[in-house]
Amino acid sequence: MPVIEVEALTRRYTTRTGFRRRTRKDVEAVRGISFEVGRGELFGLLGPNGAGKTTTIKMLITLLLPTSGSARVLGHDVVAEPREVRRRIGYVFGGDKGLYERLSGLDNLRYFAELYGVPAREQGPRIGELLELVGLTGRERERVEGYSRGMRQRLHIARGLLHRPDVLFLDEPSIGIDPVGARELRQTVASLTSQGTTVLLTTHYMFEADELCDRIAVIAGGLIVAEGTPAELKSRVADGHVVEIEVFDGVGDRLDAVRAIPGVTSVGVEDGGHSQLLVVRTDAAATVTPAVLGRLDGLALGRVATREPTLEDAYVELVRQA
């Protein structure tokens, strides 16, 4: 039985603005998504801001009711049996909120241990174990207001794990932490799944999803636009190559010409300050590269390189198509 089953889930927000003349505005944040996550799997929801990732998670952790469709976590319906679901899941979100600043890290954990009904006898050892896991041992008696972002994030993770949840929901956990902290976080998450915890992770960091996830669903505009292992997704959109050319002059008026070259699947431009990077995706790099250079004749060019597509290329492609 899958641990998470989502079927045709939708969520519409109605916002009312204005005081005297109230106007209703409906926003469809999630527009009918379906997926399943198996036990012990690390499943990633990848998408740009506003794609519907957080809305999806909030429906799964019972904080939001779906407008239509259904979702079950560990066999319990998120609408009908919220308490059963809540007992068995953990929820961690990114950013430095969600903690009691004036309390110590230890007190924060104690409080949530009570809220999650961790038996009194088990609390001490469990908290000690988690502090060890997230590397906060020795700092637990300090007030959270003095913690760094990375420490807060790790405390969050410990909080989410207090009651040994079967499923852990991580909503953009590495937002705003430094690269070292983010790497430690990824190691912690990876070690969880090795112990059998199912993890649903949302992120917009490609490398994070690539490194961690067993399976990824790319979500854009409230719809799942692709689903598969990182390798599958990479091969799906670009089983060719990526040609990158550094251009020092304006390249805008040549783009259509480059696109017209046979074998070119897509063309993008990334602004790099004093230069621009022309990113050409193709399935035949050997023949396409000279043709592209031909179309750019007369422009000051810098580095020219050909590389394998990354998950980011796949992602950009998918989101662009959506």
């Binding site: 952790i61 019972t62 904080l63 308490r83 809540r86 007992r87 929820y91 979100f93 950013g95 909120k97 969600g98 903690l99 009691y100 600043e101 949530f112 009570e114 809220l115 999650y116 009904g117 909080r159």
Partner: peptide, 18 residues
């Protein structure tokens, strides 16, 4: 404001007891 409200509601404990 401190982002704990969702965590409190999302816990299995009745909100009143919190």
């Amino acid at each position: 404001r401190q982002g704990t409200l969702e965590l409190l509601v999302g816990s299995p404990t009745s909100f009143s007891l919190v």
